[in-house]
Amino acid sequence: MSIRKVAARAGVSTATVSRVFTQPQAVADETRRRVMTAAGELHYAPHPAASALARGRTCNLGIVVPDVSNSFSAVVTKAVDRQARREGYALFVAGSDEVVHDEETSARALAQQVDGLLLVSPRMPDDALLALADMTPIVMLNRLLDGIPAVLTNLYEATGHAVEHLHALGHRTVVYLAGPDGYTNDVRLRGFRDACSRLGMEASELGPFAARFQAGVRAADLVLAASVTAVVAYNDEIAVGVVNRLSDRGIGVPSDISVVGFDDTELAEMVTPRLTTVRIPAAMAGTAAVELLLDLVRGRDAGLGSPRELSAELVVRSSTGPARVAPDTGQDPAP
């Protein structure tokens, strides 16, 4: 049923019918009643997208992730999409492939087509983020910047728990496989260094590596050259790559080297041995972020100044075990 037929039956113009559905307060009560009666009799309903555009809204949200194929990004995106649909919004998705320029370009392109934008672990400079926030409402996951609402996970404490777990198993030499430069890696690295220093462990670092399986495969040979008994990897994908390559080289996990990942994605349960990892509530973070974003879009921005912080937890599985015994003395190598 067309708007013209509603206008003809109510005896008004099509512009008046449009105003009844988009700006009802601008139409006289009697006229509004006639239009609504005619619309009801003709079973007319305005198109949702057209109504939204008339109100200056698109009913679209956007999300930019570092890698659309990454397991963690997929969990976050799915949670955001589910919540967005519940609220009547469609979701546009873009991936940067961990390239800062592409991240900024994608974000700027989306900003012109959506009511609000989510950025997952963004790496672009602060001034670029602030300029983007002037274009459209923004919420970030795993990045902290004054003036932009954020959802964070307590990665510093969780990394410390992972190191403490390895120390309790007798490990005294451990390497951290760094991920892409940025807030997330910085916090994990700081937690790793501080925990190792506090516990008197010999710590080394390798990377940065792309947050992907193949990067972990390449990193494994460097791990063997470092002569350590334990590995803390930036994420599960790197960790699983390490486990895979070590197996190919006849190195036992955890009998020779223990491996810890981050994120607790589905990969952690699929690999053999099952991966000890730090569980990050990805779905919860995505839902919290889109709720914050919709509050911004709807003008309910009171109390959004402080970041919303979520807890992480260490999940112990089969990829970590007691440090190997030194063959020459039969004693644990720990001092």
Rank of each mutant, 00 (worst) to 15 (best):
A7N: 02
T105W: 03
A289C: 09
D301S: 15
V93C: 12
G252V: 07
V217K: 03
M135W: 00
A39Y: 00
G330I: 09
S106A: 15
V271C: 11
P66H: 03
D328T: 12
F213L: 10
E269I: 04
T159D: 06
A74P: 08
L296E: 08
N60Y: 05
R33Q: 15
D126I: 07
S69D: 14
D127H: 15
R274S: 15
L267R: 02
H47V: 14
A282I: 07
T22S: 15
R9C: 01
V139P: 05
H167M: 01
T272V: 13
A158F: 02
A26G: 04
R317C: 10
E202W: 12
L91G: 10
R32Q: 13
N70T: 01
K5D: 14
V187M: 04
T320N: 02
R190P: 03
I63M: 09
V35Q: 04
E237Q: 08
M124H: 00
T277K: 02
G160L: 08
R245D: 06
R55H: 09
Q331M: 11
P180V: 11
V240C: 07
A158Y: 02
A15H: 08
L61D: 12
P322K: 07
V68I: 15
P125E: 09
G200N: 05
R324G: 00
R86V: 14
V217L: 14
D115A: 03
Y183V: 09
T276H: 08
D332L: 14
Q214T: 12
A28V: 08
L145V: 15
V325D: 00
E266M: 07
V243S: 04
L42V: 05
T22E: 00
G147R: 03
P137D: 00
Q113K: 12
T276N: 09
Q112E: 13
A50G: 15
